[in-house]
Simulated assay, not measured.
Amino acid sequence: MIVEIYSDLICPWCYIGKRRLELALAERPRLPLERRWQPYELNPDMAPAGIDRVAYLAAKFGGIERARQVYGVIEETAAKDGIPIRLDRIRRTPNTLAAHRLVRLAGRSGLADVMTDLLFDAYFIESLDIGDRDVLLSKAAQAGLDPDLTRDYLASNLDVAAIRATESVARQLGIQAVPCFIFNRRYALAGAQEPTAFMPLLDLAAEEVEPVAQQVTPRA
């Protein structure tokens, strides 16, 4: 089974949604599943250096007080799922293109899940600027990626066009917000739903996979 997860690495609901998917999968421990992390920039026109957090919140919410109200709800929700998000400590809203590229690079070594975890933690718990190349290099090293290869990759334009193409396809499919989980490219679940909301789709997708598995299982 394949689940494609459209998300942005600065989206708190994507972080929460990831945790809830993991909780759902814990209820189906024998379910063969491949997670594919797909990019979806919330701010595709963001300046390469990002923007001061206060200025960003003022533009998005109309002021800090409104932002604090919204983020209070997010932090409370995240805490219930065991995620110690501290949005008030974030000082800069980054451009996430390079971070998405790093996840793609990590995926070639089977480390996309690890890289995604590290980047979510870096932004929401460590309050780091995940648009900063030094931060990305540090997290890549933690994930086990080759430092020289990663440095050269981030200094290039490799996969930029692929990221843009994937985002374009997502919007053509009607994805307008993240997270969005697509199972076997047929069934979609939008938003950071409770773990129980994943169960019907996991079971439905598993039913499609099982007959194929039975068909190719060799006989003794």
Rank of each mutant, 00 (worst) to 15 (best):
residue 2 I to G: 03
residue 3 V to G: 13
residue 4 E to G: 12
residue 5 I to L: 13
residue 8 D to H: 07
residue 10 I to N: 12
residue 10 I to M: 04
residue 12 P to R: 09
residue 12 P to W: 05
residue 14 C to T: 06
residue 14 C to M: 07
residue 15 Y to V: 01
residue 15 Y to D: 03
residue 16 I to A: 02
residue 16 I to D: 10
residue 17 G to D: 10
residue 19 R to H: 01
residue 20 R to F: 06
residue 22 E to H: 08
residue 24 A to K: 12
residue 25 L to H: 09
residue 27 E to V: 12
residue 32 P to A: 05
residue 34 E to H: 13
residue 34 E to G: 11
residue 35 R to P: 01
residue 37 W to Q: 12
residue 37 W to F: 15
residue 38 Q to Y: 05
residue 41 E to M: 13
residue 45 D to S: 15
residue 46 M to W: 07
residue 48 P to R: 14
residue 51 I to F: 03
residue 52 D to K: 09
residue 53 R to M: 15
residue 54 V to Y: 07
residue 55 A to T: 15
residue 56 Y to S: 10
residue 57 L to A: 07
residue 60 K to Q: 12
residue 61 F to R: 02
residue 62 G to C: 07
residue 63 G to K: 06
residue 66 R to I: 11
residue 68 R to E: 14
residue 69 Q to S: 10
residue 70 V to N: 12
residue 73 V to D: 13
residue 76 E to P: 05
residue 80 K to S: 10
residue 82 G to F: 01
residue 85 I to L: 14
residue 86 R to A: 11
residue 88 D to K: 13
residue 88 D to C: 02
residue 89 R to S: 10
residue 92 R to Q: 12
residue 94 P to Q: 07
residue 98 A to N: 11
residue 101 R to M: 07
residue 102 L to W: 01
residue 104 R to T: 09
residue 105 L to W: 10
residue 110 G to Q: 01
residue 111 L to E: 00
residue 112 A to H: 01
residue 114 V to L: 02
residue 115 M to D: 00
residue 118 L to C: 00
residue 119 L to T: 00
residue 119 L to V: 00
residue 124 F to G: 00
residue 124 F to M: 04
residue 124 F to T: 02
residue 128 L to T: 00
residue 129 D to L: 00
residue 129 D to A: 01
residue 130 I to K: 01
residue 130 I to V: 10
residue 130 I to C: 03
residue 131 G to Y: 04
residue 132 D to T: 02
residue 132 D to S: 11
residue 133 R to D: 11
residue 136 L to T: 06
residue 140 A to H: 00
residue 143 A to M: 02
residue 143 A to T: 00
residue 144 G to I: 06
residue 144 G to R: 02
residue 147 P to C: 11
residue 147 P to E: 08
residue 147 P to I: 08
residue 148 D to L: 14
residue 148 D to T: 14
residue 148 D to Q: 13
residue 149 L to M: 12
residue 150 T to W: 07
residue 155 A to V: 06
residue 155 A to I: 10
residue 155 A to L: 12
residue 158 L to W: 13
residue 159 D to M: 13
residue 161 A to G: 02
residue 161 A to T: 09
residue 162 A to M: 07
residue 164 R to F: 04
residue 165 A to T: 08
residue 165 A to P: 06
residue 166 T to N: 07
residue 167 E to I: 03
residue 167 E to K: 04
residue 169 V to Y: 11
residue 169 V to W: 10
residue 171 R to Q: 12
residue 173 L to R: 13
residue 174 G to W: 06
residue 176 Q to H: 13
residue 177 A to E: 08
residue 179 P to D: 08
residue 179 P to H: 03
residue 180 C to F: 15
residue 192 A to C: 09
residue 196 T to R: 15
residue 196 T to F: 12
residue 197 A to D: 15
residue 199 M to V: 14
residue 200 P to C: 03
residue 201 L to E: 08
residue 202 L to D: 00
residue 208 E to L: 04
residue 208 E to D: 14
residue 209 V to L: 15
residue 211 P to Y: 01
residue 214 Q to R: 15
residue 217 T to D: 09
residue 217 T to K: 15
